[in-house]
Design a protein around this nucleic acid. Structure first.
Length: 569
RNA sequence: CGGGGUAUAGCUCAGUCUGGUAGAGCGUUGCGUUUGGGACGCAAAAGUCGGGGGUUCGAAUCCCUCUGCCCCGACCA
Protein backbone atom coordinates (compact mmCIF):
# COMPACT_ATOMS: atom_id res chain seq x y z
CA UNK A 1 0.00 0.00 0.00
CA UNK A 2 1.21 3.47 -0.83
CA UNK A 3 0.84 5.88 2.02
CA UNK A 4 0.28 8.75 -0.37
CA UNK A 5 -2.91 6.99 -1.42
CA UNK A 6 -3.80 5.42 1.90
CA UNK A 7 -4.65 8.32 4.15
CA UNK A 8 -3.87 7.65 7.75
CA UNK A 9 -4.67 10.16 10.43
CA UNK A 10 -2.14 9.85 13.17
CA UNK A 11 -2.36 12.25 16.09
CA UNK A 12 0.45 13.88 17.99
CA UNK A 13 -1.84 14.84 20.82
CA UNK A 14 -3.86 12.35 22.80
CA UNK A 15 -7.62 12.81 22.68
CA UNK A 16 -8.88 13.69 26.15
CA UNK A 17 -11.26 10.73 26.39
CA UNK A 18 -8.58 8.05 26.39
CA UNK A 19 -7.46 6.55 29.66
CA UNK A 20 -5.59 3.30 28.99
CA UNK A 21 -2.62 2.93 26.69
CA UNK A 22 -4.30 0.73 24.10
CA UNK A 23 -7.17 3.19 23.72
CA UNK A 24 -4.76 6.12 23.40
CA UNK A 25 -2.59 4.38 20.85
CA UNK A 26 -5.53 3.10 18.82
CA UNK A 27 -6.85 6.66 18.57
CA UNK A 28 -3.45 8.16 17.87
CA UNK A 29 -2.65 5.58 15.21
CA UNK A 30 -6.00 6.24 13.55
CA UNK A 31 -7.22 2.65 14.02
CA UNK A 32 -10.57 3.56 15.55
CA UNK A 33 -12.82 6.57 15.89
CA UNK A 34 -15.57 6.94 18.46
CA UNK A 35 -19.15 7.39 17.33
CA UNK A 36 -20.86 7.39 20.75
CA UNK A 37 -20.22 5.85 24.17
CA UNK A 38 -18.99 2.32 23.56
CA UNK A 39 -19.44 2.51 19.79
CA UNK A 40 -16.41 2.65 17.50
CA UNK A 41 -15.72 2.81 13.79
CA UNK A 42 -12.79 0.68 12.68
CA UNK A 43 -10.76 2.73 10.25
CA UNK A 44 -8.93 1.01 7.37
CA UNK A 45 -5.61 0.59 9.17
CA UNK A 46 -7.35 -0.81 12.27
CA UNK A 47 -9.56 -3.09 10.26
CA UNK A 48 -6.51 -4.71 8.68
CA UNK A 49 -5.40 -5.91 12.10
CA UNK A 50 -8.91 -6.92 13.10
CA UNK A 51 -9.24 -9.02 9.95
CA UNK A 52 -5.93 -10.73 10.60
CA UNK A 53 -7.10 -11.68 14.10
CA UNK A 54 -10.34 -13.01 12.61
CA UNK A 55 -8.45 -15.02 10.03
CA UNK A 56 -6.32 -16.77 12.64
CA UNK A 57 -9.38 -17.56 14.74
CA UNK A 58 -11.26 -18.87 11.70
CA UNK A 59 -8.38 -21.06 10.58
CA UNK A 60 -8.03 -22.66 14.00
CA UNK A 61 -11.77 -23.12 14.50
CA UNK A 62 -11.99 -24.78 11.11
CA UNK A 63 -8.99 -26.93 11.93
CA UNK A 64 -10.75 -28.04 15.13
CA UNK A 65 -13.70 -29.16 13.02
CA UNK A 66 -16.09 -26.34 13.90
CA UNK A 67 -18.52 -25.15 11.22
CA UNK A 68 -19.00 -21.49 10.50
CA UNK A 69 -22.48 -20.06 10.14
CA UNK A 70 -23.99 -16.63 10.63
CA UNK A 71 -26.99 -15.84 12.81
CA UNK A 72 -29.00 -12.60 12.89
CA UNK A 73 -27.95 -9.93 15.36
CA UNK A 74 -31.60 -9.10 16.04
CA UNK A 75 -33.43 -11.77 17.97
CA UNK A 76 -37.11 -12.19 18.83
CA UNK A 77 -38.15 -11.90 22.48
CA UNK A 78 -40.01 -15.22 22.41
CA UNK A 79 -36.77 -17.23 22.30
CA UNK A 80 -35.45 -15.37 25.31
CA UNK A 81 -38.70 -15.85 27.15
CA UNK A 82 -38.44 -19.55 26.45
CA UNK A 83 -34.99 -19.81 28.00
CA UNK A 84 -36.04 -17.58 30.89
CA UNK A 85 -33.39 -14.98 30.13
CA UNK A 86 -35.74 -12.24 28.87
CA UNK A 87 -36.32 -11.39 32.53
CA UNK A 88 -33.06 -12.72 33.95
CA UNK A 89 -30.69 -10.78 31.71
CA UNK A 90 -31.42 -7.28 32.94
CA UNK A 91 -30.72 -3.92 31.34
CA UNK A 92 -27.58 -5.13 29.53
CA UNK A 93 -29.96 -6.61 26.98
CA UNK A 94 -30.87 -3.93 24.45
CA UNK A 95 -34.59 -4.34 23.74
CA UNK A 96 -36.78 -2.66 21.17
CA UNK A 97 -39.97 -3.12 19.21
CA UNK A 98 -40.63 -3.37 15.51
CA UNK A 99 -43.44 -1.57 13.64
CA UNK A 100 -45.90 -4.31 14.63
CA UNK A 101 -45.07 -3.74 18.28
CA UNK A 102 -43.28 -7.09 18.52
CA UNK A 103 -40.39 -7.23 20.98
CA UNK A 104 -36.82 -7.89 19.94
CA UNK A 105 -33.33 -7.71 21.36
CA UNK A 106 -29.97 -7.01 19.80
CA UNK A 107 -28.05 -10.19 20.56
CA UNK A 108 -25.54 -10.01 23.42
CA UNK A 109 -24.89 -13.74 22.86
CA UNK A 110 -26.57 -16.47 20.83
CA UNK A 111 -27.37 -19.52 22.97
CA UNK A 112 -31.09 -19.18 22.29
CA UNK A 113 -30.80 -18.80 18.55
CA UNK A 114 -28.34 -21.66 18.12
CA UNK A 115 -30.38 -23.94 20.37
CA UNK A 116 -33.40 -23.16 18.23
CA UNK A 117 -31.40 -24.07 15.14
CA UNK A 118 -30.15 -27.24 16.77
CA UNK A 119 -33.58 -28.47 17.83
CA UNK A 120 -34.92 -27.95 14.32
CA UNK A 121 -31.97 -29.35 12.39
CA UNK A 122 -30.54 -32.08 14.58
CA UNK A 123 -32.67 -35.21 14.80
CA UNK A 124 -30.24 -38.05 15.41
CA UNK A 125 -27.28 -38.82 17.66
CA UNK A 126 -25.48 -39.67 14.44
CA UNK A 127 -25.34 -35.99 13.60
CA UNK A 128 -23.45 -35.37 16.85
CA UNK A 129 -21.15 -34.03 18.02
CA UNK A 130 -21.26 -30.81 16.04
CA UNK A 131 -19.83 -27.38 16.72
CA UNK A 132 -21.18 -24.21 15.07
CA UNK A 133 -19.44 -20.87 15.25
CA UNK A 134 -19.73 -17.35 13.92
CA UNK A 135 -17.74 -14.12 14.06
CA UNK A 136 -20.19 -11.31 14.52
CA UNK A 137 -21.18 -8.09 16.25
CA UNK A 138 -22.68 -8.29 19.70
CA UNK A 139 -24.30 -5.55 21.71
CA UNK A 140 -24.27 -5.39 25.49
CA UNK A 141 -25.59 -2.22 27.06
CA UNK A 142 -22.78 -1.98 29.62
CA UNK A 143 -23.37 0.22 32.67
CA UNK A 144 -20.09 1.87 32.01
CA UNK A 145 -18.39 1.30 28.69
CA UNK A 146 -14.74 2.29 28.95
CA UNK A 147 -11.20 1.83 27.73
CA UNK A 148 -12.15 2.11 24.05
CA UNK A 149 -12.80 -1.23 22.41
CA UNK A 150 -11.69 -3.05 25.56
CA UNK A 151 -15.16 -2.67 27.05
CA UNK A 152 -17.30 -1.37 24.26
CA UNK A 153 -21.04 -1.84 23.93
CA UNK A 154 -20.93 -3.07 20.36
CA UNK A 155 -18.04 -5.44 19.79
CA UNK A 156 -16.94 -8.29 17.59
CA UNK A 157 -17.11 -11.75 19.08
CA UNK A 158 -16.34 -15.23 17.90
CA UNK A 159 -18.96 -17.42 19.51
CA UNK A 160 -19.12 -21.18 19.12
CA UNK A 161 -21.67 -23.69 20.39
CA UNK A 162 -21.23 -27.44 20.48
CA UNK A 163 -23.90 -30.13 20.75
CA UNK A 164 -23.36 -33.60 22.16
CA UNK A 165 -25.23 -36.80 22.82
CA UNK A 166 -23.63 -37.32 26.23
CA UNK A 167 -21.43 -35.75 28.84
CA UNK A 168 -18.28 -37.57 27.78
CA UNK A 169 -18.59 -36.18 24.28
CA UNK A 170 -19.08 -32.68 25.71
CA UNK A 171 -15.91 -33.04 27.77
CA UNK A 172 -14.06 -34.10 24.64
CA UNK A 173 -15.41 -31.19 22.60
CA UNK A 174 -14.52 -28.82 25.41
CA UNK A 175 -10.97 -30.15 25.45
CA UNK A 176 -10.70 -29.67 21.69
CA UNK A 177 -11.75 -26.03 22.09
CA UNK A 178 -9.25 -25.57 24.91
CA UNK A 179 -6.54 -26.70 22.54
CA UNK A 180 -7.83 -24.58 19.66
CA UNK A 181 -7.86 -21.52 21.93
CA UNK A 182 -4.33 -22.20 23.08
CA UNK A 183 -3.21 -22.37 19.46
CA UNK A 184 -5.13 -19.21 18.58
CA UNK A 185 -3.63 -17.07 21.33
CA UNK A 186 -0.18 -18.48 20.67
CA UNK A 187 -0.46 -17.59 16.99
CA UNK A 188 -1.70 -14.13 17.95
CA UNK A 189 1.64 -13.65 19.71
CA UNK A 190 0.08 -13.07 23.13
CA UNK A 191 1.32 -14.03 26.56
CA UNK A 192 -1.76 -15.68 28.01
CA UNK A 193 -2.95 -18.02 30.70
CA UNK A 194 -5.99 -20.30 30.92
CA UNK A 195 -7.63 -20.04 34.33
CA UNK A 196 -10.50 -21.72 36.16
CA UNK A 197 -13.47 -19.42 36.21
CA UNK A 198 -16.95 -18.86 37.53
CA UNK A 199 -19.56 -19.61 34.93
CA UNK A 200 -21.55 -16.46 35.73
CA UNK A 201 -24.81 -15.58 34.02
CA UNK A 202 -24.28 -17.92 31.06
CA UNK A 203 -24.63 -20.87 33.42
CA UNK A 204 -23.24 -24.37 33.31
CA UNK A 205 -20.54 -26.37 35.03
CA UNK A 206 -16.89 -26.43 33.99
CA UNK A 207 -15.52 -23.17 32.68
CA UNK A 208 -12.17 -21.61 31.94
CA UNK A 209 -11.14 -18.12 30.94
CA UNK A 210 -8.21 -17.20 28.73
CA UNK A 211 -6.45 -14.10 30.03
CA UNK A 212 -3.87 -11.93 28.37
CA UNK A 213 -1.49 -10.89 31.12
CA UNK A 214 -1.29 -7.10 31.44
CA UNK A 215 -1.09 -4.73 34.39
CA UNK A 216 -4.06 -2.78 33.11
CA UNK A 217 -6.31 -5.86 33.14
CA UNK A 218 -9.63 -5.60 34.92
CA UNK A 219 -9.38 -9.10 36.42
CA UNK A 220 -7.05 -10.54 38.99
CA UNK A 221 -5.84 -14.08 38.52
CA UNK A 222 -4.04 -16.36 40.93
CA UNK A 223 -1.58 -18.96 39.75
CA UNK A 224 0.89 -21.38 41.28
CA UNK A 225 4.59 -20.80 40.85
CA UNK A 226 5.19 -24.54 40.76
CA UNK A 227 2.54 -26.14 38.56
CA UNK A 228 -0.13 -25.16 36.04
CA UNK A 229 -2.81 -24.24 38.58
CA UNK A 230 -4.45 -20.92 37.69
CA UNK A 231 -7.81 -19.48 38.64
CA UNK A 232 -9.68 -16.23 38.56
CA UNK A 233 -9.09 -14.62 41.95
CA UNK A 234 -12.83 -14.66 42.68
CA UNK A 235 -12.70 -18.44 42.44
CA UNK A 236 -9.22 -19.30 43.78
CA UNK A 237 -9.47 -21.21 47.04
CA UNK A 238 -7.70 -19.63 50.03
CA UNK A 239 -6.52 -22.59 52.07
CA UNK A 240 -6.52 -22.83 55.85
CA UNK A 241 -3.13 -22.15 57.42
CA UNK A 242 -1.05 -25.29 57.83
CA UNK A 243 0.33 -24.27 61.21
CA UNK A 244 -1.79 -24.49 64.38
CA UNK A 245 -2.99 -21.39 66.15
CA UNK A 246 -0.66 -20.00 68.78
CA UNK A 247 -1.56 -20.11 72.47
CA UNK A 248 -3.44 -17.28 74.15
CA UNK A 249 -0.89 -15.02 75.84
CA UNK A 250 -2.82 -11.83 76.55
CA UNK A 251 -5.78 -11.07 78.74
CA UNK A 252 -8.96 -9.76 77.14
CA UNK A 253 -9.08 -5.96 77.43
CA UNK A 254 -11.35 -3.25 76.16
CA UNK A 255 -9.50 -0.20 74.87
CA UNK A 256 -10.71 3.17 73.60
CA UNK A 257 -10.04 3.77 69.90
CA UNK A 258 -11.51 7.16 69.17
CA UNK A 259 -12.00 7.92 65.51
CA UNK A 260 -10.62 4.63 64.25
CA UNK A 261 -12.91 3.56 61.42
CA UNK A 262 -10.73 1.40 59.26
CA UNK A 263 -8.34 -1.42 60.01
CA UNK A 264 -5.49 0.86 58.97
CA UNK A 265 -6.61 3.49 61.53
CA UNK A 266 -6.95 0.84 64.19
CA UNK A 267 -3.58 -0.78 63.54
CA UNK A 268 -1.90 2.61 63.62
CA UNK A 269 -3.53 3.83 66.81
CA UNK A 270 -2.91 0.59 68.72
CA UNK A 271 0.52 -0.02 67.23
CA UNK A 272 -0.35 -3.51 66.03
CA UNK A 273 -0.10 -5.15 62.61
CA UNK A 274 -3.19 -5.45 60.43
CA UNK A 275 -2.59 -9.21 60.54
CA UNK A 276 -3.31 -9.07 64.27
CA UNK A 277 -6.77 -7.57 63.68
CA UNK A 278 -9.96 -9.29 62.64
CA UNK A 279 -12.58 -7.31 60.76
CA UNK A 280 -16.26 -7.98 61.03
CA UNK A 281 -18.51 -7.38 58.04
CA UNK A 282 -22.26 -7.47 58.49
CA UNK A 283 -24.16 -8.62 55.44
CA UNK A 284 -27.81 -9.25 54.70
CA UNK A 285 -28.93 -12.78 55.44
CA UNK A 286 -31.15 -14.88 53.24
CA UNK A 287 -34.11 -14.73 55.66
CA UNK A 288 -34.26 -11.04 56.47
CA UNK A 289 -31.68 -11.35 59.24
CA UNK A 290 -28.03 -10.36 59.17
CA UNK A 291 -24.89 -12.47 59.15
CA UNK A 292 -21.40 -11.60 60.42
CA UNK A 293 -18.44 -12.45 58.21
CA UNK A 294 -14.98 -12.25 59.75
CA UNK A 295 -11.72 -12.00 57.87
CA UNK A 296 -8.22 -11.09 58.99
CA UNK A 297 -7.51 -7.37 58.96
CA UNK A 298 -5.19 -7.48 55.96
CA UNK A 299 -7.49 -9.68 53.86
CA UNK A 300 -10.40 -8.88 51.57
CA UNK A 301 -13.79 -10.49 51.62
CA UNK A 302 -14.58 -12.52 48.49
CA UNK A 303 -18.20 -11.79 47.56
CA UNK A 304 -18.60 -14.77 45.28
CA UNK A 305 -17.52 -17.22 47.98
CA UNK A 306 -19.53 -15.49 50.71
CA UNK A 307 -22.80 -15.42 48.82
CA UNK A 308 -22.69 -19.19 48.38
CA UNK A 309 -22.80 -19.78 52.17
CA UNK A 310 -26.08 -21.04 53.66
CA UNK A 311 -28.05 -18.19 55.19
CA UNK A 312 -26.27 -15.44 53.23
CA UNK A 313 -28.22 -13.43 50.67
CA UNK A 314 -27.14 -13.84 47.06
CA UNK A 315 -25.99 -11.60 45.50
CA UNK A 316 -24.04 -10.43 48.50
CA UNK A 317 -25.23 -7.17 50.04
CA UNK A 318 -23.65 -5.24 52.86
CA UNK A 319 -26.19 -4.55 55.60
CA UNK A 320 -27.28 -0.94 55.80
CA UNK A 321 -25.81 1.22 58.57
CA UNK A 322 -29.24 1.38 60.23
CA UNK A 323 -29.56 -2.40 60.37
CA UNK A 324 -26.02 -2.69 61.67
CA UNK A 325 -26.90 -0.26 64.44
CA UNK A 326 -30.16 -2.04 65.21
CA UNK A 327 -28.60 -5.52 65.49
CA UNK A 328 -25.26 -4.74 67.13
CA UNK A 329 -25.97 -1.48 68.91
CA UNK A 330 -22.76 -0.09 67.49
CA UNK A 331 -21.54 2.09 64.68
CA UNK A 332 -19.73 0.58 61.72
CA UNK A 333 -16.06 0.80 62.62
CA UNK A 334 -16.34 -0.83 66.02
CA UNK A 335 -18.05 -4.12 65.22
CA UNK A 336 -16.97 -7.50 66.48
CA UNK A 337 -18.11 -11.05 67.15
CA UNK A 338 -18.25 -10.78 70.96
CA UNK A 339 -21.89 -10.36 71.88
CA UNK A 340 -23.08 -10.55 68.28
CA UNK A 341 -26.42 -12.31 68.13
CA UNK A 342 -26.69 -14.18 64.87
CA UNK A 343 -24.84 -16.40 62.51
CA UNK A 344 -21.06 -15.91 62.35
CA UNK A 345 -18.76 -17.24 59.64
CA UNK A 346 -15.03 -16.90 60.17
CA UNK A 347 -12.40 -17.20 57.51
CA UNK A 348 -9.89 -19.98 58.13
CA UNK A 349 -7.04 -17.53 58.49
CA UNK A 350 -8.92 -15.21 60.85
CA UNK A 351 -9.68 -18.22 63.02
CA UNK A 352 -5.96 -18.93 63.23
CA UNK A 353 -5.01 -15.67 64.98
CA UNK A 354 -4.41 -15.63 68.72
CA UNK A 355 -4.60 -12.49 70.87
CA UNK A 356 -6.37 -10.57 68.13
CA UNK A 357 -7.99 -7.15 68.01
CA UNK A 358 -11.63 -6.65 67.03
CA UNK A 359 -14.50 -4.22 67.51
CA UNK A 360 -16.37 -4.23 70.84
CA UNK A 361 -19.81 -3.37 69.42
CA UNK A 362 -19.57 -0.09 71.27
CA UNK A 363 -18.72 3.22 69.67
CA UNK A 364 -14.95 3.86 69.62
CA UNK A 365 -14.16 0.74 71.64
CA UNK A 366 -12.18 -2.32 70.57
CA UNK A 367 -11.06 -5.48 72.34
CA UNK A 368 -7.46 -6.60 72.40
CA UNK A 369 -6.13 -10.00 73.39
CA UNK A 370 -9.18 -11.80 72.04
CA UNK A 371 -8.89 -15.56 71.73
CA UNK A 372 -11.11 -18.15 70.10
CA UNK A 373 -12.18 -20.91 72.48
CA UNK A 374 -11.67 -18.65 75.49
CA UNK A 375 -13.46 -15.34 74.89
CA UNK A 376 -15.58 -16.78 72.11
CA UNK A 377 -16.67 -20.27 71.09
CA UNK A 378 -14.50 -22.06 68.55
CA UNK A 379 -15.81 -20.63 65.28
CA UNK A 380 -17.32 -22.17 62.20
CA UNK A 381 -14.51 -21.65 59.70
CA UNK A 382 -14.97 -21.21 55.97
CA UNK A 383 -13.11 -19.81 52.95
CA UNK A 384 -14.50 -16.32 52.34
CA UNK A 385 -11.44 -14.27 51.50
CA UNK A 386 -9.51 -13.48 48.36
CA UNK A 387 -6.32 -15.44 48.03
CA UNK A 388 -3.19 -13.33 48.31
CA UNK A 389 0.30 -13.68 46.89
CA UNK A 390 2.29 -16.16 48.95
CA UNK A 391 -0.68 -18.35 49.93
CA UNK A 392 -0.24 -22.07 49.42
CA UNK A 393 -1.60 -23.12 46.04
CA UNK A 394 -4.87 -25.09 46.19
CA UNK A 395 -3.22 -27.54 43.80
CA UNK A 396 -0.94 -28.55 46.66
CA UNK A 397 2.19 -27.47 44.83
CA UNK A 398 3.92 -24.12 45.14
CA UNK A 399 2.81 -20.70 46.28
CA UNK A 400 0.27 -18.44 44.67
CA UNK A 401 1.14 -15.38 42.66
CA UNK A 402 -1.37 -12.74 41.65
CA UNK A 403 -1.36 -11.10 38.22
CA UNK A 404 -3.69 -8.84 36.30
CA UNK A 405 -5.36 -10.17 33.18
CA UNK A 406 -7.62 -9.16 30.34
CA UNK A 407 -10.25 -11.79 29.63
CA UNK A 408 -10.11 -12.49 25.90
CA UNK A 409 -11.70 -15.92 25.80
CA UNK A 410 -14.06 -18.04 27.83
CA UNK A 411 -15.09 -21.66 27.37
CA UNK A 412 -18.01 -23.35 29.15
CA UNK A 413 -19.54 -26.75 29.52
CA UNK A 414 -23.15 -25.62 29.58
CA UNK A 415 -24.63 -29.06 30.05
CA UNK A 416 -28.37 -29.11 29.41
CA UNK A 417 -29.32 -25.67 30.70
CA UNK A 418 -30.57 -24.36 27.37
CA UNK A 419 -31.40 -27.63 25.66
CA UNK A 420 -33.66 -28.52 28.60
CA UNK A 421 -35.41 -25.17 28.65
CA UNK A 422 -35.90 -25.19 24.91
CA UNK A 423 -36.47 -28.89 24.44
CA UNK A 424 -33.56 -29.60 22.11
CA UNK A 425 -33.47 -33.37 21.73
CA UNK A 426 -32.21 -36.08 19.40
CA UNK A 427 -32.94 -39.78 19.17
CA UNK A 428 -30.26 -42.06 20.61
CA UNK A 429 -29.23 -45.59 19.46
CA UNK A 430 -32.29 -47.04 21.15
CA UNK A 431 -34.62 -44.58 19.46
CA UNK A 432 -35.21 -42.72 22.71
CA UNK A 433 -35.42 -38.98 22.81
CA UNK A 434 -32.46 -37.51 24.73
CA UNK A 435 -31.69 -33.91 25.59
CA UNK A 436 -28.45 -32.71 24.02
CA UNK A 437 -25.46 -31.53 26.03
CA UNK A 438 -24.04 -28.17 25.04
CA UNK A 439 -20.80 -26.26 25.27
CA UNK A 440 -20.16 -22.65 24.37
CA UNK A 441 -16.92 -20.89 23.56
CA UNK A 442 -16.30 -17.18 23.05
CA UNK A 443 -13.44 -14.94 22.00
CA UNK A 444 -13.64 -11.14 22.18
CA UNK A 445 -12.14 -10.40 18.79
CA UNK A 446 -12.04 -6.63 19.13
CA UNK A 447 -10.81 -6.93 22.69
CA UNK A 448 -7.93 -9.12 21.49
CA UNK A 449 -6.66 -6.20 19.43
CA UNK A 450 -6.65 -3.88 22.45
CA UNK A 451 -5.11 -6.57 24.65
CA UNK A 452 -2.32 -7.12 22.14
CA UNK A 453 -1.46 -3.43 22.37
CA UNK A 454 -1.62 -3.41 26.17
CA UNK A 455 0.98 -6.15 26.11
CA UNK A 456 3.10 -4.80 23.25
CA UNK A 457 3.91 -1.12 23.18
CA UNK A 458 6.56 1.41 24.16
CA UNK A 459 6.82 5.19 24.47
CA UNK A 460 6.76 5.59 20.68
CA UNK A 461 3.71 3.50 19.96
CA UNK A 462 2.44 0.04 19.20
CA UNK A 463 4.70 -2.97 18.67
CA UNK A 464 2.55 -5.46 16.79
CA UNK A 465 3.08 -9.16 16.99
CA UNK A 466 4.03 -10.13 13.45
CA UNK A 467 0.88 -12.17 12.87
CA UNK A 468 -1.56 -9.29 13.37
CA UNK A 469 0.40 -6.23 12.25
CA UNK A 470 -1.61 -4.17 9.75
CA UNK A 471 1.50 -4.27 7.55
CA UNK A 472 4.59 -6.36 8.19
CA UNK A 473 7.08 -4.07 6.48
CA UNK A 474 7.36 -0.28 6.31
CA UNK A 475 9.53 1.11 3.54
CA UNK A 476 10.77 4.58 4.43
CA UNK A 477 12.41 6.25 1.43
CA UNK A 478 13.91 9.47 2.78
CA UNK A 479 13.73 11.57 -0.36
CA UNK A 480 11.21 9.73 -2.49
CA UNK A 481 10.08 12.90 -4.24
CA UNK A 482 13.55 14.27 -4.92
CA UNK A 483 15.96 11.42 -5.54
CA UNK A 484 15.40 9.18 -8.49
CA UNK A 485 17.91 6.70 -7.08
CA UNK A 486 15.95 6.41 -3.85
CA UNK A 487 12.62 6.25 -5.61
CA UNK A 488 13.71 3.46 -7.97
CA UNK A 489 15.25 1.42 -5.17
CA UNK A 490 12.15 1.88 -2.98
CA UNK A 491 9.74 0.98 -5.76
CA UNK A 492 11.79 -2.10 -6.61
CA UNK A 493 11.71 -3.25 -2.98
CA UNK A 494 8.00 -2.50 -2.80
CA UNK A 495 7.37 -4.80 -5.76
CA UNK A 496 9.69 -7.42 -4.37
CA UNK A 497 7.85 -7.61 -1.04
CA UNK A 498 4.54 -7.63 -2.85
CA UNK A 499 5.66 -10.54 -5.01
CA UNK A 500 6.88 -12.35 -1.91
CA UNK A 501 3.40 -12.05 -0.40
CA UNK A 502 4.55 -9.82 2.45
CA UNK A 503 2.22 -6.92 3.38
CA UNK A 504 4.22 -3.80 2.75
CA UNK A 505 3.53 -0.12 3.27
CA UNK A 506 5.65 2.43 1.44
CA UNK A 507 5.83 5.93 2.87
CA UNK A 508 6.02 7.85 -0.39
CA UNK A 509 4.72 11.06 1.18
CA UNK A 510 6.62 14.27 0.70
CA UNK A 511 7.33 14.48 4.41
CA UNK A 512 10.41 14.95 6.53
CA UNK A 513 12.16 11.82 7.81
CA UNK A 514 11.19 12.45 11.41
CA UNK A 515 7.52 12.39 10.50
CA UNK A 516 7.89 9.10 8.66
CA UNK A 517 9.87 7.47 11.47
CA UNK A 518 7.42 8.61 14.08
CA UNK A 519 4.43 7.33 12.11
CA UNK A 520 5.92 3.94 11.35
CA UNK A 521 6.71 3.51 15.05
CA UNK A 522 3.30 4.71 16.20
CA UNK A 523 1.64 2.29 13.77
CA UNK A 524 3.84 -0.46 15.18
CA UNK A 525 4.94 -2.03 11.91
CA UNK A 526 7.42 -4.80 12.81
CA UNK A 527 10.06 -4.32 10.10
CA UNK A 528 11.29 -0.92 8.95
CA UNK A 529 13.55 -0.37 6.01
CA UNK A 530 15.04 3.08 5.49
CA UNK A 531 16.18 3.85 1.98
CA UNK A 532 18.50 6.81 1.58
CA UNK A 533 21.10 8.08 -0.88
CA UNK A 534 23.81 7.55 1.71
CA UNK A 535 23.33 3.80 1.94
CA UNK A 536 22.44 3.27 -1.69
CA UNK A 537 25.90 4.54 -2.63
CA UNK A 538 27.17 1.35 -0.99
CA UNK A 539 24.27 -0.76 -2.19
CA UNK A 540 22.68 -0.99 1.24
CA UNK A 541 19.57 0.08 3.11
CA UNK A 542 18.95 0.25 6.84
CA UNK A 543 16.96 -2.41 8.60
CA UNK A 544 15.42 -2.06 12.03
CA UNK A 545 12.95 -4.27 13.82
CA UNK A 546 10.38 -2.37 15.89
CA UNK A 547 11.85 -3.96 19.02
CA UNK A 548 15.45 -3.08 18.13
CA UNK A 549 17.23 -0.02 19.46
CA UNK A 550 19.71 0.29 16.63
CA UNK A 551 19.66 -0.18 12.88
CA UNK A 552 21.86 -2.35 10.73
CA UNK A 553 22.90 -2.08 7.10
CA UNK A 554 21.59 -4.74 4.76
CA UNK A 555 22.56 -5.24 1.14
CA UNK A 556 19.76 -4.28 -1.22
CA UNK A 557 19.66 -7.77 -2.67
CA UNK A 558 19.24 -9.42 0.76
CA UNK A 559 16.44 -7.31 2.17
CA UNK A 560 13.52 -9.69 1.68
CA UNK A 561 15.55 -12.61 2.95
CA UNK A 562 16.62 -10.59 5.96
CA UNK A 563 13.02 -9.74 6.85
CA UNK A 564 12.04 -13.38 6.45
CA UNK A 565 14.84 -14.42 8.79
CA UNK A 566 13.86 -11.86 11.41
CA UNK A 567 10.19 -12.85 11.16
CA UNK A 568 11.02 -16.44 11.92
CA UNK A 569 13.18 -15.52 14.88
C1' C B 1 -28.15 3.96 39.33
C1' G B 2 -25.18 7.16 42.99
C1' G B 3 -21.01 10.65 43.32
C1' G B 4 -17.47 13.89 40.87
C1' G B 5 -15.83 16.43 36.53
C1' U B 6 -16.37 18.46 31.81
C1' A B 7 -18.58 20.64 27.16
C1' U B 8 -15.16 27.00 23.22
C1' A B 9 -12.04 25.64 15.56
C1' G B 10 -10.84 18.76 13.03
C1' C B 11 -7.46 17.72 17.85
C1' U B 12 -5.30 19.64 22.74
C1' C B 13 -6.67 23.75 25.45
C1' A B 14 -6.85 29.27 27.26
C1' G B 15 -10.67 32.93 27.94
C1' U B 16 -15.75 32.24 32.51
C1' C B 17 -14.14 34.16 38.94
C1' U B 18 -14.41 40.30 37.57
C1' G B 19 -20.42 40.52 31.35
C1' G B 20 -18.34 44.63 26.38
C1' U B 21 -19.33 40.69 20.99
C1' A B 22 -13.63 34.80 20.62
C1' G B 23 -7.88 33.25 21.01
C1' A B 24 -3.21 29.96 21.04
C1' G B 25 -0.62 25.44 19.72
C1' C B 26 -1.20 21.19 16.65
C1' G B 27 -3.66 19.80 12.16
C1' U B 28 -5.64 21.54 7.20
C1' U B 29 -4.97 24.70 2.31
C1' G B 30 -1.54 27.84 -0.79
C1' C B 31 3.45 29.88 -1.76
C1' G B 32 8.61 29.88 -0.60
C1' U B 33 12.90 28.00 2.05
C1' U B 34 14.12 23.14 3.99
C1' U B 35 15.04 17.42 3.98
C1' G B 36 18.45 11.17 8.48
C1' G B 37 14.03 11.88 14.17
C1' G B 38 7.29 15.04 14.52
C1' A B 39 11.36 22.00 10.35
C1' C B 40 10.84 27.47 9.32
C1' G B 41 8.57 31.95 7.18
C1' C B 42 4.39 34.34 4.91
C1' A B 43 -0.70 33.98 3.74
C1' A B 44 -5.54 31.56 4.32
C1' A B 45 -9.86 28.71 5.51
C1' A B 46 -12.19 27.00 9.80
C1' G B 47 -16.23 28.06 15.80
C1' U B 48 -24.90 27.76 16.24
C1' C B 49 -18.78 29.03 22.57
C1' G B 50 -23.42 21.42 23.77
C1' G B 51 -29.30 22.62 23.35
C1' G B 52 -33.36 25.53 25.34
C1' G B 53 -35.06 29.36 28.56
C1' G B 54 -34.05 33.66 31.68
C1' U B 55 -31.43 38.26 33.72
C1' U B 56 -29.13 42.52 31.14
C1' C B 57 -28.41 48.08 26.85
C1' G B 58 -25.10 43.86 26.06
C1' A B 59 -23.96 36.80 27.91
C1' A B 60 -18.78 31.89 26.08
C1' U B 61 -18.92 34.55 30.95
C1' C B 62 -24.43 35.30 35.68
C1' C B 63 -29.17 32.19 36.82
C1' C B 64 -32.56 27.95 35.59
C1' U B 65 -33.19 23.59 32.81
C1' C B 66 -32.14 19.64 29.49
C1' U B 67 -28.44 16.72 26.99
C1' G B 68 -23.74 14.49 25.61
C1' C B 69 -19.11 12.82 27.22
C1' C B 70 -15.20 11.36 30.86
C1' C B 71 -13.75 9.50 35.70
C1' C B 72 -14.83 6.99 40.44
C1' G B 73 -18.12 3.79 42.98
C1' A B 74 -19.95 -2.02 48.92
C1' C B 75 -13.99 -4.88 51.17
C1' C B 76 -16.58 0.07 55.45
C1' A B 77 -17.90 -2.16 59.74
Amino acid sequence: MRLSQYPISTLKEVPAEAEVVSHRLMLRAGMIRRLAAGLYTWMPIGLRTLRKVERIIREEMDRAGALELSMPTVQPAELWQESGRWNAFGPELLRFKDRHDREFAYGPTHEEVITDIARRELRSYRQLPVNFYQIQSKFRDEIRPRFGVMRAREFLMKDAYSFHADEASLAEGYRAMYEAYSRIFTRLGLEFRAVQADSGSIGGSASQEFHVLADSGEDAIAFSDDDDYAANLELAAALAPSTPRGPAAQALAKVPTPGARTIADLARSLGVAAEQCVKTLIVDGADGDVVALLVRGDHELNALKAQKLPGVASPLRMASAERVRATTGAEPGSLGPIGFRGRIYVDHTAANVADFVCGANEKDQHYTGVNWGRDLPEPQTVDIRNAVAGDRSPSGRGRLRIARGIEVGHIFQLGRKYSDAMNATVLDEQGRSVTMFMGCYGIGVTRVVAAAIEQNHDANGIIWPESIAPFRVALVPLTYQKSELVRNAADALYREFGDAGIDVLIDDRDARPGVKFADSELLGIPHRIVIGDRGLANGTVEYRHRRDTTSSDVALADVVGHVRARSAG
